[in-house]
Design a binder for these strands. Structure first.
Lengths: 210, 210
DNA sequence: AAATTAATTAATCAAATGATTAAAATACCT
DNA sequence: AGGTATTTTAATCATTTGATTAATTAATTT
């Protein structure tokens, strides 16, 4: 009989092993390049078990994708919507948290971006409220600063693009950057550590430009 | 008898039709998600012709990938290594050229980055001289500016990452950005046009930060 | 312990997919 | 025009790959 999801909390056994393996392989290779046999092997289980627990490659993928995006967004949104934290401080926190996260999980951005390109409508609809970011307190604070004449009047998306670009791009392009810069993994990590402090400074300098 | 590449210049017929279709489909979907039948259909030719002209999916892909990267790099390197153009002017030119190129070919960055992740060593070795960028006149000019105390002493790669991040990321993340920002394609294009002028300003502001 | 349910495995299926072949159609050459 | 080489097609292979099945083992219940 097929399992209908009983003890979600309990043992990190087979079902969880499969999810862990699936997360790893999907993140590294993407949906199309992933073979269910790859996942089974990585999880150390029989291939049939994957379908026993998750019905299909697609269903398993949907679960991993949802969890991946959820984990990514909620943590960020939590910070962005804090009332007590100043605009500048939020930038600091976001940059540090994001870089630390990406050092741990460097495959996530390219994974998400690739799958998003392959399936825009469907995946984006899953990020619950689309416009939740643009209505966050962070963006309010941004627009308030503009009103006060403290930063240049640009579209908030420019700012988002610049932040994300500077934080995320190095990880997305790390193979290329490591190559052209002749960086060892340790050198790369060192640069990322520097960027935790540098990016907020750069961003603030940019915002002042008229 | 199999063709051994005779008239490379001549007619834009079957062989070229296949390459055009292959470029389009590979760029959009990546190697793994592309079916040779997709290419054949897009090219309006019989599937067997693809193998007749190019032997295999992989060989065809290698050609497309090489040409794609070549086209990308040479145009940029040409600008970077011009002796007469000032550092600041080069930034202007690169940003404008890159954004214009990406408006025409928005799929290329994610395509290259994805395939690079899937196959780092092999693909990177194909970019001829790895360190050619770091030894370009542009980087020399950058380091000269540091020596003169005109810009802050940071690793050139920080600068590269920031430029590429700000220019390329919006295209890589366009589905997401269009969604969270509720942008129509025209709005997005308008933002990209603005960025041609904004990014050089921002970059210059950043470089001055100590 | 017996009976029932759940988990696991090996074997196998069916569809998708990259590639080949042999024949037909077309272009080329003299 | 006749002959040769090239291009194109339809049919078919062989392998890969997602999924299922039937049988076996392990766990749980009564």
């Amino acid at each position: 009989m097929k399992p209908v999801k009983i003890n979600a909390a309990a043992d990190p056994s087979t079902e969880e092993k499969i999810k862990i393996a699936a997360r790893s392989v999907f993140h590294k290779k993407g949906y199309a390049a992933t073979r269910t046999r790859d996942i089974a092997e990585e999880a150390g289980i029989n291939l049939a078990l994957l379908n026993y627990y998750f019905r299909s490659k697609e269903k398993l993928f949907d679960i991993i994708m949802t969890e991946t995006m959820q984990g990514f967004l909620t943590s960020v949104m939590f910070i962005l919507n804090d009332e007590k934290t100043s605009f500048e401080k939020k930038i600091d926190i976001i940059v540090v948290n994001y870089i630390d996260l990406l050092i741990e999980e460097p495959d996530i951005p390219l994974f998400v971006l690739s799958e998003l390109r392959a399936n825009p409508e469907e995946l984006i609809s899953r990020i619950s409220n689309k416009k939740v970011l643009m209505k966050s307190i962070f963006i309010m604070q941004f627009q308030q600063k503009i009103k006060e004449g403290k930063i240049a009047p640009i579209h908030p998306l420019h700012f988002i693009m610049n932040m994300l670009g500077m934080v995320v791009f190095p990880f997305v392009g790390s193979p290329m950057l490591k190559s052209i810069g002749d960086l060892k993994p340790k050198d790369f990590d060192e640069l990322m550590q520097q960027r935790k402090k540098l990016i907020p400074k750069w961003v603030n300098a940019m915002l002042k430009i008229k």
